[in-house]
């Protein structure tokens, strides 16, 4: 029987380029921030082209601002489409957020951040229209990631899992399930049992979502800053997040899983150890499923 494909990956960041290419570690994929590779002529794009020869690449964007009521930046969509054509990625993703809006005399500005959207019907309509626009341009489905949000709007027509289930049903996109974001939100909401809150979220999603909605899982670490838990990808994955991840695998089955680390980047070996742990949990879930069947 052929070996099962590896499902774990890491976010590849510039300080690790040289070591990564020399080491060529066993991974199912690597993920990069799309915007860092929009320019086809710079050195980073050369590195990505070389990495692509050995690995599947997942393109993860932070700038589309898919939930923006004022619409998308067509130039950004064009640059993403060009990148997708160059890289032929295994997945393309961005966030369920807004960042663009008209402001004062300036015109449309971009906040360079992932700003929260309301879980209302109007917001869902906006997100669906923008996701469909990008998917039509890329000619492939997107994955849309759930946010860590530091402010929430009181008006809502859906729970968050219902919102993503409906988004997937209507637009055909998938969900990039960020388990750490769920945990950060639970901590900031002062949930009495944050782990239980996260597992409840995932269970609700499993009940509500069309089959196969989730296409990838993100795991990361967080820090506490000025009274808030910030999803800054600056630490190892927390123990509770690992437990929530196991619950997600139980609900969803083995899943491509990424370790994200952006701040206080550790040695590559640390990142690979975390990814290997995710891979081992995936493999264990796969064996359990095979025994059961």
């Amino acid at each position: 029987m052929p070996a099962a494909p590896l499902l774990h990956g890491i976010g590849l960041r510039q300080p690790h380029y040289r070591e990564f290419r020399a080491l060529r570690p066993p991974l199912g994929f690597v993920e990069v921030h799309s915007e860092n590779f929009f320019n086809p002529h710079d050195a980073a794009s050369q590195v990505l082209a070389a990495v692509r020869e050995d690995y599947a690449v997942s393109l993860h964007g932070v700038g589309l601002a898919l939930g923006s009521a004022c619409g998308l930046d067509e130039d950004h969509v064009r640059r993403l489409a060009d990148l997708v054509a160059r890289v032929d990625p295994v997945r393309v993703s961005d966030h369920a957020c807004f960042a663009r809006a008209p402001w004062a005399q300036v015109g449309i500005v971009h906040a360079s951040d992932l700003l929260p959207i309301a879980f209302t019907r109007a917001s869902l309509d906006i997100l669906c229209a923008n996701v469909e626009r990008v998917q039509d341009r890329l000619r492939r489905p997107l994955l849309v990631e759930n946010l860590s949000a530091y402010l929430d709007f009181p008006e809502r027509d859906f729970s968050e899992p219902q919102f993503f289930a409906e988004l997937g049903r209507r637009s055909g996109c998938g969900l990039l399930l960020d388990v750490n974001n769920l945990y950060v939100n639970a901590l900031n909401a002062a949930e009495p049992d944050p782990l239980q809150a996260v597992c409840g979220w995932i269970s609700e999603l499993t009940r509500e979502a069309p089959p196969g909605l989730v296409g990838e899982i993100h795991l990361a670490g967080f820090s506490k800053q000025q009274g808030l838990i910030i999803d800054d990808h600056s630490r190892p994955v927390a123990e509770d997040v690992w437990q929530a991840y196991v619950h997600a695998l139980d609900c969803l089955g083995p899943m491509p899983t990424l370790i994200e680390w952006d701040e206080h980047l550790p040695a590559l070996s640390v990142l690979l150890e975390q990814a290997a742990h995710a891979g081992a949990l995936c493999a264990a879930r796969r064996e359990t499923a095979q025994v059961a069947s």
């Binding site: 923006s68 004022c70 809006a101 008209p102 906040a111 700003l115 209302t120 309509d125 402010l151």
Partner: peptide
Amino acid sequence: MSAATHTTELERQQRLIAAIFA
């Protein structure tokens, strides 16, 4: 989606953007 509900979301987003850049 009605124009009114779209406007509600647009205004909500504009207010947050304005608060961020204030």
